[in-house]
Design a protein around this nucleic acid. Structure first.
Lengths: 202, 202
DNA sequence: TCCAATCTGTACTGATCTGTTCACCTTGTG
DNA sequence: CACAAGGTGAACAGATCAGTACAGATTGGA
């Protein structure tokens, strides 16, 4: 109950920034929409930039938790990697979907040296680490390379879902991803044999 | 000389919007940086939004011309498709690279019904049509599907080049793309056969 | 030389921006 | 009850926003 006002501000700011953009959203509007006085907002956050950074931290946490838990349900590491694109499909279908918060943040703060840009990049790095670890668990000979490829497809699907005319970018991405995952050691086959086959495919 | 002032405004606005963002760039600043009076700017463009739309039209033209000409140098359609990622690599290496202007525009104007958003989507559609035609010429059994896959990789590479920590997203994307292109009719084999496939694809 | 079009500088409007100030209210705890 | 912490509303500062008004300068062509 004590620290909840601060969280309330961040939660509400998250949805409004995500919906309308960072520059386009004023602190007055944020105060009006959240029902929290501007005085209080500026008591918790010295500047708008500080608030945005807090929003991005929350989003990073929420998103990575949601995604990896959603993927974990798929079972085996290989299937978890494929399930990333099923998760994306669900996300894209949501009526509130408006691209990736961090791509948007980096678009509005394009200078790589800006704290908001840097923190957005950090989110992508953490995502990469998670996917790379899964790729390693799945027995990929080059886990980092596979993770980079899968995340390329993920980012492309997000952008295309927001900006494209296409029906099912998550499905398209999953199809390509399945091709990349096909060379991984199959659960059905012997892990050693599959690793050998994978080795010569590269 | 007559219509050149208008073009000057658009050209300069393009570089500043691209560098700093749309909302973050004021008309006063634009006037100061371009050396063109605000009066003149508002004589040519009734509103800032009109100017942005003109900027996006110019960018669409410039970018598609640059990309497809750069790709055309590669020769055969299949190689042209692969060369898209070499073009991206060059672009990413440019010191002024700051992601894709249309992804940025869509980020700042996230409502799909907004004219700026719609025009950004149109750019992606035109790109898709060009790549799909090339895929057809290359003899792809599903040109649209191949084009969607390649463009997913392209968008992902752009975002990652801007936001990521990675060394060579264009190279990563190209590696995956080569895998997709591997199943196309080989140049070494019957070129007539490929040409025939091309003929019927059109 | 004169005309007409275009461009310029400056000052202005009214709205909105981030951030501050201040007096007052609410609420939980001792 | 009293106190302290935290929240409120409203007004304010100073900058900046998109867009306008207007009088004068520049330019090219007949």
């Amino acid at each position: 109950m004590r620290a909840s006002k601060r969280d309330e501000v961040v939660r509400k700011a998250l949805t409004v920034f995500y919906r309308d953009g960072f520059h386009a959203t004023g602190m007055d509007q944020l105060s009006a929409e959240s029902g929290i006085s501007k005085t209080t907002m500026f008591k918790h956050f010295r500047t708008k930039e500080d608030l945005i950074l807090a929003v991005l931290r929350l989003r990073d946490d929420d998103f990575r938790n949601w995604l990896f838990r959603r993927m974990a349900k798929a079972g085996a590491p290989r299937d978890q990697l494929a399930a990333m694109f099923d998760a994306l499909a669900e996300w894209f279908d949501s009526p509130t979907f408006r691209s990736c918060m961090f791509i948007k943040a980096a678009s509005e703060y394009p200078d790589p040296g800006h704290p908001i840009h840097a923190q957005s990049a950090e989110h992508k790095r953490l995502l990469f680490l998670g996917v790379r670890d899964l790729a390693a668990e799945a027995g990929a000979p080059d886990p980092a390379g596979l993770a980079r490829a899968l995340l390329l497809l993920k980012e492309g699907a997000i952008v295309t879902a927001h900006l494209g005319h296409e029906a099912d970018p998550a499905g398209d991405a999953k199809r390509v991803a399945e091709g990349l995952l096909a060379s991984l050691p199959d659960r059905a086959r012997a892990p050693r044999e599959a690793a050998a086959a994978d080795g010569e495919a590269r």
